[in-house]
Amino acid sequence: MAAGGDHGSPDSYRSPLASRYASPEMCFVFSDRYKFRTWRQLWLWLAEAEQTLGLPITDEQIQEMKSNLENIDFKMAAEEEKRLRHDVMAHVHTFGHCCPKAAGIIHLGATSCYVGDNTDLIILRNALDLLLPKLARVISRLADFAKERASLPTLGFTHFQPAQLTTVGKRCCLWIQDLCMDLQNLKRVRDDLRFRGVKGTTGTQASFLQLFEGDDHKVEQLDKMVTEKAGFKRAFIITGQTYTRKVDIEVLSVLASLGASVHKICTDIRLLANLKEMEEPFEKQQIGSSAMPYKRNPMRSERCCSLARHLMTLVMDPLQTASVQWFERTLDDSANRRICLAEAFLTADTILNTLQNISEGLVVYPKVIERRIRQELPFMATENIIMAMVKAGGSRQDCHEKIRVLSQQAASVVKQEGGDNDLIERIQVDAYFSPIHSQLDHLLDPSSFTGRASQQVQRFLEEEVYPLLKPYESVMKVKAELCL
């Protein structure tokens, strides 16, 4: 049975990233139509530049190519590739079939990587351009969430054990800070992308030097003109047959890092959902379990974690691919890159769409948070109580021993009897502590235990987050809708 299948058929496997999760716009960027249309555009740009620099290419040939950029006979191309065992030459023939007058000058002087690699770089750039505003929107939604809850005390956790208090907004800023680093890295790697350009079979530009009869300047002009037509500021000066596969490492490393950030955020949300302090959106008709109707599973956060793990592992592909590119190139890269580049971007696209949807509907339960604080705060307040007693004339050592005994009794009630923490009640009825009984409410005010959390939130948002989001103001209103 021949390899390949009808990918629109229910009898043929289709990647869930495309069929179930990723956005239509990201799927289109990695589609065959987008790819092969870009090949034709690159052939047109090459012909236009070659004509401008004096090669015998007519206006009629150029116009014929322009008129057929979208006229792609995919069936013919597939048949040609089956016959020739070469995808680029299959599309040269297919393009030439609908451009008979231009057929002889299509791909003039070029090698397969002229269309293959340059198209990949265009796709990487455009895919990054799709991700950047999506990530900015996630940051914006979380920034709104953090600002609104900047002063809401909550129990902090280290080692997932109760620690000092923080605020809900401050905790959210930990998430935002990681995503801001990801946004900066995505922008950097996007701006650092260079075009492969017009380089020939081993990167020496020998074929173009021959076409222009040894004119170095025209060869350099050709490279520059096509690079500018493709919208790049610069091209690699040095290439082998391909652009260095280190570029793929750079791009997928940034995406993998984004995956790590999203995994951490969504894990926190899942843990908070278990504590009943916070939940992701839950639709009115949504079913959490087929057997347990009360369940409210954090399905979206779980999906993000599941896909983020996949995204983090994909960076190993370009690392290994770059390491086995012998001399000017081997074909070890080809099949692998067809999979890992598309999957990385479709996965990143999915987790950003999902995280935006989550961040637009996060639900906080202040009463649950308050109750958990009441359970733990008495123990945390013991040092403040000791200091207040010393100020009232008591002995630190005597007070410490009193607190120690009462704390152990209260802990026994919590752990052995399943009761509430009654340390404060014990202190309130103990005559030894009568000098500070009137101060206990103040000493137990949760806001006095959150330090500068709310001020940190305000400063972080104003100095770091809002300036970073400013270039994306025009796209901030787009909502994230999930079908599944």
Rank of each mutant, 00 (worst) to 15 (best):
I436E: 04
A18H: 11
Q210M: 13
L84M: 10
R188T: 12
A77M: 15
M278S: 05
G54P: 04
K170W: 06
T350V: 13
M278F: 10
A308M: 04
A273F: 15
A273M: 05
D129A: 09
Q164K: 00
V262L: 11
I238P: 03
K233S: 08
L174E: 14
S140V: 14
S31W: 01
T119F: 07
K134D: 14
Y294V: 03
S359Q: 14
L131T: 09
D430S: 11
W175A: 15
L165W: 02
T239S: 10
L211W: 10
L341G: 14
A453V: 09
P366G: 05
A308E: 02
E25Y: 06
L211G: 03
T201N: 10
E376K: 05
D317E: 04
L331W: 00
R37S: 13
F30K: 00
W175T: 05
M316G: 05
T450H: 02
V198R: 03
G197Y: 01
S140A: 06
S207G: 13
R404M: 09
G231K: 09
S261E: 04
S395P: 05
F74M: 15
T244P: 14
Q428W: 13
M278N: 04
D32P: 05
G200Q: 13
R309Y: 01
H442K: 04
R245S: 01
V115D: 02
A291Q: 02
R309E: 07
T94H: 08
M181E: 12
D120T: 09
Q456S: 10
E228Y: 15
V138C: 09
Q320Y: 09
V88K: 05
I62W: 04
I287Q: 06
K147R: 05
D398E: 06
A110M: 13
L44G: 04
S434T: 12
L55W: 06
F232D: 01
L352K: 02
N336A: 12
P366N: 06
I123E: 07
L406K: 11
F449V: 05
V363Y: 04
S257N: 14
T347G: 11
E463P: 02
W326Q: 09
C305V: 08
G200T: 00
Q51P: 00
I385M: 04
A22W: 14
A90S: 07
V364Y: 01
P133R: 14
K229V: 02
A273G: 08
I436P: 07
Q375R: 05
K147D: 07
K187V: 12
L44K: 04
R337M: 05
T239G: 06
I176V: 13
S323H: 00
P293W: 01
Q285E: 06
C180M: 08
E343P: 09
P435Q: 12
E376D: 15
N126E: 15
M299Q: 05
T244S: 15
F30S: 04
Q221A: 10
D120F: 15
V247W: 10
K470Q: 14
L132W: 13
K402S: 10
V363K: 03
Q416E: 13
R371E: 00
I57Q: 00
Q205I: 10
R188D: 11
E277T: 01
Q241S: 00
K35F: 02
Y114S: 07
V247G: 14
K66G: 05
T347V: 07
G203T: 01
I237T: 10
A2T: 13
E228N: 00
P435Y: 07
L132E: 11
E401T: 08
G393L: 09
L461R: 04
V226R: 03
F74G: 12
L352P: 00
